[in-house]
Design a protein around this nucleic acid. Structure first.
Lengths: 347, 347
DNA sequence: GTGAAAGCGCTAACAG
DNA sequence: CTGTTAGCGCTTTCAC
């Protein structure tokens, strides 16, 4: 049995616990617990003496113990599985993080951003997420055949995916929010076709991403019989790949009349390439981008593009996750948000 | 007392525990714990039967319980306190995240990226970090007078700060890694002075950041009596602010001969502005940037800049934190990494 | 209102 | 090598 003196010395070393606060305030652990959880059903005078003890001891709750006892963690993960080195360079990424943390906070959840680039990291991250570290997750998984997604669906962690998961039959077992990429790309391409002369080409996103594939599919559908395989080049979402893409396209078709670029950032690069090749936009080549990101305003001329409702997507994701976490919803939701063509001066 | 049938039914519902695995494998909880923690001092045959039970039950450990029992969480936070909206748009950010997670994984730590933009969020994040959710943190706190830093130092969480914390006297109570911004800026400016005619100006970073302030101080020191207040404009690290900055400088000093820009990204914008104003680089205006980031290679001409050892900084941060976490180090470390001028074609 | 007590699921001595 | 047994610090009934 420790003497009072020893106890005091020990207290100085280790972190104070609920027990310490209770002892100092002269109440039971249960009462202290009630106070730090809102103070319901506790006499005001007791509340203040407990708070005084908390202040004196510099007490702060041990989340781990609280988690174990209550069965929840108060955290939500934003999971980014990006195989490229462009991780975090996407400007939309910051927007998502900002909205998620702002919306989750009043709900009592912290946002943790986690990333995995290779399989080994995905496994490590899967362990983390499925072992009770977080209450739920929002996933940005641009690629097909996501190991992580399967793993997390299996673990029954409440999940919301940004973008419709493709290439798996259990995709509907999780909630997702998407746009109709194919339709949006088709609309954009039709607009282009109606306003330019000469062949219409496209610079696509990576073909192993759903956005990349579906935007190409929409382009193809709009062109119908006019579609030419040689007027398709693949990009990787980077502006550099847009610039290189347009250089290649101009070699293949010097009389290029229109260009549908699967992202604004690539369109930025493509317009740089067009200028270098002395092609006027939209006079010689009309250009339409995709996303309506900040990049679409800094191009010269301003870019005609497809609005991608990022903010609405983020808000919807939080709403769905909250429903799942609170038990208000028990079945997954699937939402398709509308897009629209934003006409500026490049086409 | 539950009947066997009831027990089986319950098992299907709730998550399996160590106890369930132990029962199925016919061993004790302790043994299962040993197996999942490396299997030291366990007979091979027992290991495999335990693993079989784990597989059959789809067991995965409850991290919360493990944390509570072991007193560690296995996570490290990367904390970014960014008041601007440019959060996550810094390309160096992705590099840090990549290096941290790659280096921490073999050490057994997960990386959590957390962000706070306003005071309210900082408080919320401070609660999170100081309540046992993570074992340690790496902080990117560009601004002075960081509430979070003080809060975390107080909480005694093992900490490493990227960049020397300024504006507080307890800065040395935490570990930090920095470069000598002032000296580097002075060297860069002297180089510029020796190679150009006409007044030499600067576009600074935000003055409430240590990098912003110290790089300006170095610029000023290099100029000495030649320093002119009107040849200083403040930027915010964005390329746009670089472009606007140079436009303003050209209005104030049409005979501008040299330009020291406190970041490559701003230098990129500045060079765009110089081109728009028909000024040749380096013929009319010599330009030196700072960071040696990827932006410095895509400018035309390639940018002369100061190499900022980001990768080394990241590695060093992990090393120091690991020492702190493992108990090998008990005192904070302070490291200043060398910089060097990288001469390309812009000056 | 408040105290007492039973866990939450795991780790880490400590025996044997 | 393996089982037993204390806890880790908190929440949450259940009495009083």
């Amino acid at each position: 049995m420790a003497t009072p003196v020893e106890e005091t010395a020990a207290l100085a070393r280790r972190r104070p616990t609920l027990e310490d606060v209770a002892k100092l305030a002269g109440v039971s652990r249960g009462t202290v617990s009630r106070v730090i959880n809102g103070g319901l059903n506790v006499r005001p005078s007791v509340i203040s003496s407990v708070n005084a003890a908390i202040g004196e001891l510099h007490y702060s709750v041990n989340q781990t113990a609280r988690n174990l006892a209550s069965g929840r963690t108060g955290s939500v993960a934003f999971v980014i599985s990006e195989r490229q080195d462009h991780l975090f360079e996407d400007p939309n990424f910051g927007l998502f993080v900002r909205i998620f943390s702002r919306e989750l906070r009043p709900l009592g959840f912290h946002l943790l951003v986690t990333a995995a680039q290779e399989r080994e990291e995905e496994v490590f991250l899967g362990d983390y997420l499925s072992s009770g570290h977080v209450d739920g997750a929002i996933l940005a998984l641009p690629h097909e055949d996501e190991y992580l997604l399967g793993r997390l669906i299996e673990s029954r962690l409440p999940l919301v995916v940004l973008g419709a998961p493709i290439g798996r039959d259990d995709a509907d077992r999780c909630s997702w929010i998407a746009i109709n990429d194919e339709e949006a790309a088709e609309t954009a391409t039709r607009y282009l076709l109606a306003r330019c002369h000469g062949p219409v080409a496209t610079i696509t996103g990576p073909v192993d991403t759903s956005s990349g594939r579906f935007r190409l599919a929409g382009f193809r559908r709009a062109l119908g019989p006019l579609f030419r395989e040689d007027l398709v080049v693949n990009g990787d979402w980077s502006s550099t790949s847009g610039q290189e893409g347009v250089e290649e396209l101009l070699r293949r078709a010097p009389d290029l009349g229109g260009l549908f670029v699967a992202s604004d950032l690539m369109a930025l690069g493509a317009m740089r390439g067009l200028r270098a090749a002395q092609r006027g936009v939209p006079r010689d080549v009309a250009v339409v981008g995709f996303d309506d990101s900040s990049a679409s305003l800094i191009t010269d001329p301003p870019l005609t593009t497809v609005r991608n409702p990022f903010a609405e997507t983020a808000l919807e994701a939080v709403r769905i996750l909250d429903d799942l976490l609170s038990g208000r919803a028990t079945e997954p939701s699937h939402v398709i948000l509308p897009t629209e063509l934003v006409v500026r001066d490049s086409a």
